[in-house]
Amino acid sequence: MTQKDTSVATYPARTAPQERAKRNNLPRYLSYAGMLAVMLVIGIPLYWMVIASLKTNAEIYTIPPSWIPLEPTLANYPAAWQAAPFGQYYLNSIFITVVGTAIKVFFAVTSAYALVFLRFPGKQYIFLILLAALMIPPEITIVPNYITIARIGWVNTYQGILVAGIATAYGTFLLRQYFSTMPREIIEAAKVDGANHLQILVLIVLPIAQPALVTMALITVVYIWNDFLWPLIVTNSAAMRTLPIGIFWLLDQEGVTNWGVVMAGTVFVIAPIVLIFIWAQKYIVEGIAAGAVKE
């Protein structure tokens, strides 16, 4: 149960795929070719979006379109920044995303732990309720939720934006599925050793489930960061609004969309998310997950 045991147990997980990959090189080259194709399909539209932010509006509307900006300009970036109070939107989005993700991950972890590792009567009904909640179309919930939020006086507040997260059910369902693949022997062994639930959760379940946990957190971050309709409805002042609403204003300003400015604004919005991806992706694949059962 010590630190040392778990770190020793990681070795098979990291070396095994390497050895397997060495044995046969053909699948490897096929993988590279496939990946290259996928990268192109994903990359061309992205390239197109980014270079649009470097073009003048006149160039964007030329026929045929230009693949390399003829007169590259950075003017779209300050123009986007000044078109809406992006500084305030950044603060609001960061605050809501950090707090919202922390709350959702916490409740998803605790409720998924109860659903998978605890025995209690009525468990399957609870699971069905969560599943049913997942199936509700958002257009059903938005109006009644606005009325509820207005009644308790939470319109234009952070808690008003945060509370309408049926995404909690998403997280619980997701973690339940990943927890359920976990080898039961480890949990049983820990119980025999006298570990309590908190110890089992923090020292065993969470480290093994690290890839799933980070994935769930990432999904929650992207979901809250990009959520548009609910924050728009539940806020009524620039002081409370979030980044996607700012982007929407850029899109909506004139009859003709100024794509250069919109794409510059989009770069503002997705840059922090890309940084989070870069930081988080290694925790998805380099957990201590794989070899943990080895004792």
């Binding site: 409740f107 998803a108 605790t110 409720s111 732990y113 109860a114 659903l115 605890l118 025995r119 209690f120 009567p121 468990k123 609870i126 309720i129 969560l130 049913a132 909640a133 509700i136 059903i140 919930t141 109006v143 009644p144 939720n145 509820t148 509370v163 309408a164 997260g165 049926i166 909690t168 059910a169 619980t172 639930h197």
Partner: peptide, 26 residues
């Protein structure tokens, strides 16, 4: 164990009932 399970689940179930199933019934 059962009481502990309910403590863990009640916040999630509460939010789900309030922002999900209640609007569905409405």
């Amino acid at each position: 164990q059962s009481r502990f399970a309910w403590i863990l689940l009640i916040p999630t179930i509460g939010v789900v009932l309030m922002v999900g199933l209640f609007p569905l019934a409405q």
